[in-house]
Design a protein around this nucleic acid. Structure first.
Lengths: 341, 341
DNA sequence: GTACGGAACCAAATCGATTTGGGCAAGCGA
DNA sequence: TCGCTTGCCCAAATCGATTTGGTTCCGTAC
């Protein structure tokens, strides 16, 4: 046999330290009873050999890999265009990766593993995080079926029988936005929603319609796919302002729609916020750096991600680590696209 | 023992199909010789039992997990603030995840695994992708030492002895930008760079200095940490325009610095592009939606990610799949912050 | 003197696949 | 008929850890 270039195994350490593999294992896991002197000797030889436990072998035995899967639903439509809410998802993914690391887990970005062409490794994860599941989400179906732990941020709108989801309280946020516009003097508010059938779009629209009904305003709802971005927003603007009874305020659920809306509305000669007020439902670069900057909802993806990861790993490890404090619903950031009451 | 809720194994399939585990394995891997009829029978029983091969067990034997690690260097400073070039990294990560999936791999987001507190799973990856390694990057040191396949996008500036990196040709891009400004009539060009010691910052600065030397202009270079974002750009503007000999053009390597620079320069009463021209080194939402929109370099993260993933998995699988065509250096997108010559 | 118990350690089974090294029977040429 | 190949299949070893079910060696109690 030629020089084997492989890493030392637990058996090598055991041999060099003159103990059994069991003792080496116990030394590192802290499970059995190992004399302090032996423990030290094992530690020392392990270090001198450059031994690192093989995660895969450990995973086989213990059935845990130390990896969380993150399914960013909207990422699956990403091709060479950007997914909606760029900010939101990177901030979520980045923060989730760091939070997972804090608990000794890795974070794997996966596309829907129910699809055939999905990599096999996607299924080897200990738990799943799903942002904005869609109606009758097949992944949730599968995870429930196989008993794999998961947590969804936002609820599968069609499913009643699960409770491991984080409520971002879309309804409350919608009310907050509508009340803000109301206070600022808007009388005819329109809604521009996306087309993904998730709780974000559906919940907001339901709240809006309820609010309009109470108020006696006939609802004005326009849908544009999330992927259309700014051009979708401009487009929606044309649809709304070609009407005989155009709105005097528009709530766009995505930041990019809001930005496109703003541009087009001003092109059509309206003053913002004088003639028309605009609010974005998901704060992003688009809303922050528009002229004027757009009032919008900061969904606090970092906080959401930390909470989600903490809850999930608590379930996995059967521990009760404290969840970061804070309200999980978004916060309204008032900017110049709406009038201060 | 109570009802075991575990998934069927290869042994279960073998038993039900009346064959050995070897045959089942061969059926799925296509390695041995299995009669068509037997293959079909095995396939059928496997499907009826809901069998799915266990990736971890497979990984133990074959020493391959089907997972790529992605180290986004700047992500490690992410706290509740955004990393520089939000667009760039999400577009890169998203595109890399999809490309990896196309080849049957998963993509794991990890922080530097050389750090002690890093999750063990971070090391279980088959190969590493590192964006913008820093000078004497410890991770590259470790990967070279352990013989783990990797690919870096941008080169570790201090390391001579490795060649598995993708050249984004920072020097060529810098020249292109400087030539563009030259053509547009700029006579005194300043550079605003970040502080991460990566090839992006170092290469651009070196090119800039060489160009200034040739041209006989004394170089004006200002550094601001990437994390300072727009306020760093405003800050840099003050430093540059408080000089007795202010520039008439500024090249900011990050989009956020460029956006802050633009705002501050205009606040100080200069016309852009009339008095001062501005170019951003990394196209992002900031540069696109500024007023006026900022001329900048599109680094084509989607293409870069696809190329990087393809090359890496080609090495891992010892195959020669075609790499997506296209120049890997960025493309200059001319907008209104510079004058058309 | 025997029994009991705990401390320290170990050999072997185990996790679920892949891979090695055959076995057996049919087919074929000499 | 013998030898050899080829097609099809299997038992057992293997990957590197964890875990089970011990054993051995004291020390103490009765």
């Amino acid at each position: 046999m030629t020089e084997k270039r492989s890493r030392p195994t637990i058996a090598d350490v055991a041999r060099h330290a003159g103990v059994s593999t069991t003792t080496v294992s116990h030394t590192f896991s802290g499970k059995g009873v190992v004399a302090a002197a032996t423990r030290e000797r094992v530690r020392a030889t392990a270090k001198s050999l450059g031994y690192r436990p093989d995660v895969v072998a450990r995973g086989l035995r213990s059935n845990r890999l130390g990896v969380l899967a993150l399914v960013l639903r909207p990422l699956e439509t990403l091709d060479s265009s950007l997914p909606e809410g760029v900010d939101y998802f990177l901030r979520f993914a980045g923060s989730a990766a760091l939070a997972a690391m804090d608990f000794g887990y890795g974070l794997m970005l996966v596309s829907d593993p129910t699809r055939e062409e999905s990599p096999a490794a996607a299924l080897a994860c200990d738990g799943f995080l799903i942002t904005e599941p869609v109606t009758d989400d097949p992944l949730i179906e599968m995870l429930l079926g196989e008993g794999v732990p998961f947590l969804s941020v936002g609820k599968d709108p069609a499913r009643a029988a699960y409770d491991n989801w984080i409520d971002t309280d879309t309804e409350l946020m919608t009310d907050l936005v509508l009340r803000h516009l109301d206070d600022a003097g808007a009388t005819r508010v329109a809604l521009v929603a996306g087309t993904d059938p998730n709780s974000w779009n559906l919940g907001a629209e339901a709240s809006y319609r309820a609010w309009a009904a109470v108020r006696g305003q006939d609802p004005m709802v326009v849908h544009r796919p999330e992927t259309t971005g700014e051009s979708g927003g401009r487009d929606a603007a044309d649809e709304l302002f070609d009407r005989s009874d155009p709105p005097d305020a528009v709530y766009c659920l995505t930041g990019r729609h809001a930005a496109g809306m703003l541009t087009r509305v001003r092109e059509r000669g309206f003053d913002v916020p004088g003639d028309v007020q605009i609010v974005g439902g998901s704060d992003s670069e688009h809303t922050r750096s528009a002229t004027p900057p757009i009032t919008s909802v900061d969904l606090q993806p970092e906080l959401l991600a930390r909470v989600a990861v903490t809850q999930l790993v608590n379930r996995l490890d059967d521990l009760d680590r404290p969840v970061p404090p804070g309200k999980l619903h978004g916060r309204l950031i008032v900017r110049n696209s709406t009038r201060t009451p």
